[in-house]
Design a binder for these strands. Structure first.
Length: 877
RNA sequence: GGGUGCUUAGCUCAGUUGGUUAGAGCGCCUCGCUUACACCGAGGAGGUCGCAGGUUCGACCCCUGCAGCACCCACCA
């Protein structure tokens, strides 16, 4: 006998322990079974898991658990990511808070020790949270992006790409974060619409100070680094400046006026100052015209000695001072409001500064070619498919990927420079001496790699690449990559590019992109808004099963999903429903014989048939990653069919006794099977209940490895489905009609039943007479069968009314009358429309047979219904 | 500026090659503490499928235009 309630908090941890103890999640590289592999997107070791991780855990676990039950050799590989810049920031912030020290106070070594300590703690938390979510991970393969073998893979990859000329070092303008003191890739810069000003500034013609060009800029402080002013060659307003030089204000430097069609004549004043050192577009123009590059700022974006008088001021202060000075010298023509997009550091929100420096780059456009083709040929499928367009759009316009970061936490770039002769050595292992001058005085590049570089190798590095390991042979290419669409470019695209380049094979055949998690109002969750819903708190309070079911139920193919407490609570009710249904079944059928199913019984036929359809639906939906559809199908089956009808059917005293006496097992067997069907969604409660099932596969120690239900054509009984559907309709009709007829001593219900042949109708229903009587709560029931030509009418006479004479008043009655009249009107109209349709020649000629038949059938039914309604209203009125 | 989606019941969303009367969950209203479950049961109300045209015997679905919303990429100084 089960306890009255399922208490998730108490049950979950011991169930998880049971799974671990029996090593149910361990993949076997030597197995001959087909493999199914998912590599878990490694969470950053920055802190705790959020709802997005919970969603990932849930959806991937559903896929993995189902495949495992289907007999696949299943590997779900867990891991965590060092997350370079993000983690370094967190640790730096804590260091400042706790010890009032910067990382420079500690030095590189000591600081990294701190980060490792942090990583250990954070990873431990994350692992316990992944377990709490019920994730069936193979913990023996737990990986971290700074593990030795992962590092080796990173160096190997770097080396190979360098050998092929796909990695190179170059002086270029990159986005620099003055707070994080590092270069960023284009993707790590987020542009935000920011209100600003447009300042119009005079640039006097050299030698003729009365003549001048007016340049408009949003960043006057950069004029200190101007090395030209550009105008459009065809701009007639400025022809007299062609070939001349103008004076940069405040600086007193003469710079050429250059002609370039890049300039938009309509925009601003038509004259553009060129600052190659601090603007990506100007940099391009500068290169083209061989202009000098002036770097005005240091790593903190504070003006350096190039800025002359303004040295030592930061960007904002310099701007204010410069504007003031310009105004004083009457060089400031006007200022106007101008809202424009300003780049911010994705991590810390600081306004980035374009800066020229030497960095390492990957020629992504080369790698992208194969990656594009893989998706074009559908070798890699992206689900939902709409994302393919976005993927192509980005991949076809991909630009060089800046991979060096001026951080301490990460993979050190595997490049060594000779301090004596300056030679560059790119190597997998640190060289002991310079190849050119044999000096032993070598120094490794100070920078580390972009964290996404190692992430891009994740599917292969965790499986042992570059070694030709057994895991790599067995589990690569992996099956599905499931993640949020926000890291499609950061991560997924790069895994495809690097994976294909390194192994010649795609890393996974399917990419499933799940929606973004929002709060109940559709707002992004954020700490500052205070609307963050913590998955662990919810799981603690309402149960992991409820949370997981909620997440899968809401994993629509849209772009976001909303999480609400209320929603999860409703799923908790569903858990409770299953629990109680099981309680009922176990209470009565604890000692049934296995496979003792009476298939001559139509109620049994019906529930088996229904279950069978659901099995098919769930499997089909999951194959298409339609988690919501699968979840809804099971929910509907359990609640609205198994509980509301099947259990209610068998609950009547006689029925129940008969079944118990015969040890009839349908009730248990259907339940046992549906528990297996549901297990991937709700692993805990289903395990607990499955263990209680008197009939189950005793060979299997856990439902985790019991077989996953598949559609079985032998368990389809269309006749029974049809008849039971009729019975259900009948009972529903009795229930609805009954309240109305309180005033007459006996009531007749007429039911249209065109779907079954008339003659057998009565015979079909007789076995259900008692059932109907009970479920419709009638004291007396009588069937009357009437033939009207080709049509069959079934009338039910109910006697006994006092039972249901409720408190309905006359107001309800008139309302009901009103409704019935409206219904009659609608039905009559529909009948007329059907009639017209059947007289429409074109319809009869071009509509398919089944549609025409449908209309005929509909017309007949409507006709009967109209007659019945007419009769009914006449009686009443 | 370029791109991608979305607009269906009070809310969140399904609706798979155009085809009988457009669905679900929640919420709401009415009734019922019936021996698995009040974390329950029975019933009910609620939709001119964003707007305007077009194609078709027939359109939530296809085409055109418009409006509103969301997101991504670029960053014209």
């Amino acid at each position: 006998m089960l306890e009255a309630q399922f208490v998730p908090k108490e049950a979950e941890s011991s169930i998880y322990e049971f799974w671990l103890k029996n090593e149910l999640f361990k993949a076997d590289p030597d197995s001959t079974a087909p493999t199914y592999t998912i590599v878990f997107p490694p969470p950053n070791v920055t802190g705790v898991l959020h709802m997005g991780h919970a969603l990932t855990c849930t959806l991937e676990d559903i896929l993995v658990r189902r495949k495992r039950m289907q007999g696949f050799n299943t590997l779900w590989l867990p891991g965590t990511d060092h997350a370079g810049i993000a983690t370094q920031m967190v640790v730096e912030r804590n260091l400042m808070k706790d010890e009032k020290k910067s990382r420079h106070d500690l030095g590189r070594e000591k600081f990294l020790e701190k980060v490792w300590e942090w990583k250990e703690r954070s990873q431990e938390t994350i692992i316990s949270q992944m377990k709490k979510m019920g994730g069936s991970f193979d913990w023996s393969r737990l990986a971290f992006t700074l593990d030795e073998n992962v590092s080796l893979a990173v160096r190997e990859c770097f080396f190979r790409l360098y050998q092929e000329g796909l990695i190179y070092r170059d002086q270029a303008i990159i986005q620099w974060c003055p707070r994080c003191h590092t270069a960023l890739s284009d993707l790590e810069v987020k542009f935000k619409e920011t209100p600003g000003k447009f300042w119009h500034i005079k640039y006097r013609l050299k030698g003729e100070p009365s003549k001048y060009l007016v340049v408009a800029t949003t960043r006057p402080e950069t004029l200190l680094g101007d090395t030209a002013v550009a105008i459009h060659p065809e701009d007639e307003r400025f022809t007299e400046f062609h070939g001349k030089e103008v004076m940069v204000p405040l600086v007193g430097r003469a710079v050429p006026v250059i002609l370039d069609s890049y300039v938009d004549m309509q925009f601003g004043t038509g004259a553009l100052k060129i600052t190659p050192g601090h603007d990506p577009n100007d940099y391009v123009v500068g290169k083209k015209h061989n202009l000098p590059i002036i770097n005005l700022m240091d790593e903190n974006a504070v003006l350096n000695k190039e800025a002359g008088l303004y040295q030592g001021l930061d960007r904002q202060k310099a701007r204010a001072k410069i504007l003031q000075d310009l105004d004083q010298q009457e060089l400031l023509v006007k200022e106007e409001d101008h809202s424009h997009n300003v780049g911010h550091c994705d991590r810390c929100g600081t306004i980035v500064e374009p800066r020229v420096s030497a960095q390492w780059f990957v020629k992504a456009e080369e790698l992208a070619k194969d990656a594009i083709r893989a998706v074009e040929t559908k070798e890699i499928r992206i689900v939902p498919e709409e994302w393919e367009k976005t993927y192509f759009e980005w991949m076809r316009n991909i630009r060089p990927w800046c991979i060096s970061r001026q951080l301490w936490w990460g993979h050190r770039i595997p490049v060594w420079y000779c301090n004596d002769c300056g030679e560059t050595h790119v190597a997998i292992h640190a060289p002991t001496q310079c190849q050119k001058c044999k000096s032993k005085n070598l120094k490794q590049d100070e920078d580390v790699l972009d964290t996404w570089f190692s992430s891009g190798l994740w599917p292969i590095s965790t499986l042992g690449w570059p070694a030709d390991s057994t895991d790599l042979k067995a589990f690569y290419p992996t099956s599905v990559l499931e993640t949020g669409f926000d890291i499609l470019f950061f991560w997924v695209a790069r895994m495809i590019m690097l994976g294909m380049k390194m192994t010649g094979k795609i890393p996974f055949h399917t990419v499933y992109l799940h929606p973004m998690v929002r709060d109940e109002h559709g707002q992004k969750m954020s700490k500052t808004k205070g609307n963050v819903v913590d998955p662990l708190e919810i799981s603690d309070r309402l149960g992991t099963d409820a949370l997981r079911f909620f997440l899968s139920w809401n994993a629509f193919h849209g772009r976001d999903m909303r999480v609400s407490d209320e929603g999860v609570e409703n799923c908790k009710f569903f858990v409770n429903k299953i629990w109680n249904a099981s309680r009922f079944v176990l209470m009565h059928f604890e000692d049934v014989k296995k496979s003792n199913v009476d298939l001559s019984n139509e109620v049994n036929q019906w529930i088996w048939s229904r279950l069978n359809h659901i099995k098919g639906e769930v499997n089909r939906s999951l194959e298409q990653y339609r988690f919501f559809e699968a979840a809804q199908a099971i929910y509907h089956f359990i609640w609205s069919e198994y509980c509301d009808w099947f259990i209610e059917f068998i609950k009547s005293k006689e029925e129940l006794e008969a079944r118990k006496a015969a040890k009839e097992s349908t009730a248990v067997e259907v339940l046992e099977e549906v528990l297996r069907l549901l297990h991937p969604f709700m692993p805990f409660v289903t395990e607990k209940l499955w263990q209680e099932m008197p009939i189950r596969d005793q060979q299997k120690i856990s439902v985790c490895i019991a077989s996953y239900p598949q559609e079985d054509s032998k368990r389809v009984f269309p006749k029974a489905e049809e008849r039971l559907a009729l019975v259900i309709r009948l009972i529903e009709q009795v229930r609805t009609t009954r309240g109305l007829h309180q005033l007459s001593p006996a009531t007749e219900i007429s039911l249209s039943v065109s779907s079954l042949a008339g003659e057998s109708l009565l015979k079909d229903l007789i076995p259900f007479k008692e059932l109907i009587k009970k479920l419709a709560k009638l004291k007396e029931i009588e069937f009357i069968h009437q033939e009207h030509g080709k049509q069959t009418h079934l009338s039910i006479v109910m006697r006994d009314l006092k039972l249901f004479i409720p408190k309905a008043d006359l107001g309800d009655l008139t309302k009901e009358l009103e409704r019935k009249r409206k219904e009659l009107q609608e039905k009559t109209d529909a009948l007329r429309r059907a009639d017209e349709k059947l007289r429409n020649e074109r319809f009869m000629n071009s509509a398919p047979q089944n549609v025409r038949d449908g209309v005929v059938k509909q017309k007949m039914e409507l006709k009967r219904e109209v007659e019945a309604l007419q009769q009914y209203l006449d009686d009443l009125g």
